[in-house]
Write a protein that binds this DNA or RNA. Structure first.
Lengths: 154, 154
DNA sequence: TATTGTTATACTCTATAACTATA
DNA sequence: TATAGTTATAGAGTATAACAATA
C-alpha cells in the first residue's frame, strides 16, 4: 500500500499564496474538478452536467417549469430552451402544459428518460463518492450542510 | 428589523429534490453565486475573477510561471497567455525571464499592479465576508478546511 | 524527444434583446 | 402591464492542434 499520496505537480508553493486561502477560489477549483469528473462520467450516457441536472429534476416528481429550472440551475431561460430541446428530441423528457398557467411548460421525464437517468446517476454517484473520499467520513455530511447554506443563502 | 429572511423565488420545492442533495450540484450553485458576486465587486476595478486571480498570484511573491498558473487556476495555457497579455498591456504585471529555464516566463506584479490588487482584494473580501455570513462563525474555518481538501485532493 | 509559451481556429457557452401567447 | 417561453445574435469562454525556442 502507498505510504502517502504524492502531489501531481511541481507548483505546490502556490498553495501557500493568499489566494489559496480565499473561499471563492477554493469553491471555483473544487467545482472545476468536480465538474470535469462528472462530465467524464456522463459522456458515455450522452449527457453533461447541465443536461443531467435538467433530466434529474424531470425524473424527480417535482414537475418544474422551465422558469424554475432556470432559476434553480442559475441559467438563462433561453439556455433552458436549448437543453430541453436536446432532451426532448431524444425522447427523454416531455413538455406538458401546466393546467394552472397555460404560458408555462412543466417538464416530465419519459420512461426512457428515467431509465437513462438511473444509469447516469449511478455513474455520477460513483465518481462523487470517490471525490469525497478525501474528506473524513465524519465530516462529509457537515460539508454538505455548510455548502447548502452557501448554495441557498436565503 | 426583519423577523426572518424571506426566500426570493417560488421554486422552493425543487430544494427537496434529490439533485439538491448532490455535493457536485451544491458546489456548482455555490460557485455560481460566489463568482457572480466577485465579478460584480471587481468590475469597478476593471477585473474579473480570472484576471484577479492571476494578478493576486503575481502580486504575491510566489513568482509563478504561466504553466503553473494554468495548472493552479485550471485553465488552458493558451488562456493564460490572453489573461497575462491583458494585464501586461495595462502595466499591472510583467513577464520576467526565468533564469533557471529560459523557456519559462515568471510573472511579477508592477507597483501599479500591487496597488490595484490591494484595492480589488478589499472589495472581494467585503463581498466574501458578506456571503459567508450565512455560515455560523464557528463553522467558517472548518468549511474552508474541508473545501481545501476537495480543491487539492492530492 | 519533451516542454514552455504562443498563435490560430473552431466550438461551446453566455448574455441581451425582441417577439408571441397568455396572465 | 407583466410573465413564460422562444428566437436570434453577438460576445465571452473553452478546447485543440501546430509552431518556435529551449530543455
Amino acid at each position: 500500500m502507498p505510504a502517502e499520496r504524492t502531489r501531481s505537480t511541481g507548483s505546490d508553493r502556490l498553495r501557500d499564496s493568499a489566494l489559496a486561502g480565499d473561499l471563492s477560489f477554493l469553491l471555483a477549483r473544487a467545482n472545476a474538478l468536480a465538474l470535469a469528473a462528472a462530465n467524464a462520467a456522463l459522456a458515455t450516457h450522452g449527457l453533461k452536467a447541465r443536461s443531467y441536472s435538467v433530466l434529474a429534476l424531470a425524473a424527480d416528481d417535482v414537475r418544474p417549469t422551465q422558469r424554475e429550472l432556470a432559476e434553480f440551475l442559475r441559467l438563462d431561460p433561453s439556455q433552458v430552451v436549448a437543453l430541453v430541446d436536446g432532451l426532448e428530441q431524444r425522447h427523454l423528457v416531455e413538455r406538458h402544459a401546466d393546467p394552472a398557467d397555460r404560458r408555462a411548460n412543466v417538464l416530465v421525464a419519459t420512461d426512457a428518460g428515467r431509465a437513462l437517468f438511473a444509469r447516469a446517476r449511478d455513474a455520477v454517484r460513483a465518481v462523487g463518492i470517490d471525490s469525497l473520499s478525501v474528506v473524513p467520513a465524519q465530516d462529509q455530511a457537515r460539508l454538505a450542510r455548510l455548502l447548502r447554506l452557501l448554495a441557498f443563502p436565503d
